[in-house]
Design a protein around this nucleic acid. Structure first.
Lengths: 339, 339
DNA sequence: CTGAAAGCGCTTACAG
DNA sequence: CTGAAAGCGCTTACAG
């Protein structure tokens, strides 16, 4: 298949290559008859404009960079789908890179994306301080943060109200009568970890319950982290009656640990997760969890970044905070709590 | 941050822009002193070559297209990670697109990628006939298939020996003494669905067991599909004693259906999945499953496609078939089978 | 509404 | 080992 150029089409249509360019870009300054004639030749030849030439001359690649902690993590995979669909709709492609939450790899991802020539970048998993990303923002490069935000505040983001999510979850446990409530939290050098921890603490405070330091464990947002933390909590002399988890994976790890200790959920320990992943609803899991709009966060992030890319000198900031929703299942059902 | 060009660097270093270009491309035809001088200026100015200009003139974008059925499906997400890591290592970026297994969307993805200017494409989820992909291959565009292959055979692929996987799984059930073995299979217009079904059938045949048509149900590779199919199987007068599933998700659906029917696994029905996803090992699941090297498949696919892109007129085909491995857990443990 | 000119920032191919 | 020339396939800006 021979590659045709603008000039090939122009010659075949008997017009200048500029006219063909105008037809291609839907420029109205072309007569209907000319347009039709040119369009016909384009179709006949199966001409496709050279994306690389176009990107070069316009300084726009229609490419978005997506930096996630790990694309194989289902949470990121779902955000990615939201991002992809909206990007596709808006005529953009998205390239992705996994940072593994390491500053070095994050920086390498950024370099890699810059080298590839993306028009803007979306980050799902920044730490509260992320030099590589802060530098990018300072330079005025289009950036949108999703899911997690930086501790500084001058940039665009779309996140879940994580504070409210765990505040509501803790309130729910309190209403069911639980008093000894522990939290296995994600690391608080991430805004998600920190805000969820704060929501839990505030709920206890509002109910005049004192916080016990041995009831709070920070770990990674993973089943392994949850498993280890739960082993410690469940071995305490004064075992907690309920555990709020930084995400569902932590909760799944707690389930494994409980089974290992011969404890039942919710009879011996009530459990709440965060994210409401697909598995939470499975018959063997039935995990109460805080649901957030993952796909939508990705979708909104694309709208923001495209807006930032296409309008120059944006003089306002996009800050979107979505509300989470508690989905109640049997892992802390009150009917089961009446032992 | 001002963008510098090759000529800016050349002027500052007192050489021609060609010399700078040579330094950038590690062309040996530059004296050590000149190289050093130029390198110094590059670092000082923080010069970064323009990716878009380079892509334009070399006709290579260092971009790989990845078409998956759905990036938010953990199986695809893991392949993607394998692809990403290897691509990064080889200096390529990857853009992804979800086809939802629809021919129309697959075609749209291909168009989109072509428009973006990728150097080659990887597909994880083709149907046995996939016109958009077959056309691409026929035109000589670099293509590698992963996980699923086309029914025609002249192209590069890296897949799991799906036939062997389900053959081994079925043999295992037979050895445990099960005779009434059903299969809930993925649709057989995919090579994965078809080959796994064939492995099951061959194992029965080799053991002189006749195949009962009511024991084979084709459905989508999903928990919902597994759930519906299992409801039908478990309601049969002559209920199967064991069910082999096209993948783990189908098996998870079967678990939900069994619970709904008051049946226990493996006491009432033994169960085997395929893929050995993370969840299979959870304490509440313990699903025997056929493990395949998902991450590796992605990694190998990138090596093949880069080889195809960088060497012209490749005169041989890459066909990689990886062997799966049965991971035995309690969902069909023989010690539990002795009722 | 249409076209001739110039140029984006690199690399390839050719001289020296 | 180094450089002047030409060009990749488009779009922007200016004439007409």
């Amino acid at each position: 298949m021979k590659k045709y150029t603008l000039r090939d089409v122009a010659k075949a249509a008997g017009v200048s290559h500029m006219t063909v360019s105008r037809v291609l870009n839907n420029n109205p300054r072309v007569s209907a008859t000319t347009r039709e004639k040119v369009q016909k030749v384009i179709t006949e030849l199966g001409y496709e404009p050279d994306a690389r030439a176009r990107a070069f001359v316009t300084k726009k690649s229609q490419l978005l960079g997506l930096v996630v902690s790990d694309i194989s993590n289902p949470f990121n995979a779902e955000i990615s789908r939201g991002i992809e669909d909206k990007a596709f709709e808006m005529g953009y492609s998205v390239i992705f890179c996994s940072s593994d939450e390491s500053p070095q790899r994050t920086e390498a991802c950024v370099k890699h994306m810059l080298r590839t020539g993306v028009d803007g970048m979306i980050f799902t998993s920044v730490r509260l301080k992320e030099p590589a990303v802060e530098k990018l923002i300072a330079e005025g490069f289009p950036v949108v943060l999703v899911n997690r935000k930086l501790s500084s505040s001058d940039y665009h983001y779309v996140i879940c109200n994580n504070f409210l999510g765990s505040y509501t979850a803790t309130k729910h446990l309190l209403k069911l009568g639980y008093k000894k409530i522990a939290m296995i939290s994600g690391y608080s050098n991430f805004s998600t970890g920190l805000d969820r921890l704060k929501g839990y603490q505030k709920a206890l405070e509002d109910n005049s319950l004192l916080q016990r330091s041995e009831y709070v464990i920070e770990t990674s947002f993973s089943a392994e982290g949850g498993f280890e933390a739960a082993k410690a909590l469940l071995a305490l002399k004064d075992r907690p009656e309920a555990i709020l988890c930084g995400n569902d994976y932590i909760a799944f790890g707690v389930m494994d640990a409980a089974e290992g200790s011969g404890l039942s959920i919710p009879e011996d320990v009530a459990l709440i997760g965060f994210d409401d992943t697909d598995f939470a609803a499975r018959s063997r899991i039935k995990l109460t969890s805080v649901s957030q709009k993952i796909y939508e966060m990705g979708s909104i992030a694309v709208q923001i970044i495209v807006d930032t890319i296409e309008r120059k000198n944006l003089d306002y900031e996009h800050k979107v905070v979505l509300n989470p929703k508690l989905i109640i299942r049997e892992s802390c059902g009150y009917h089961l709590h009446k032992k």
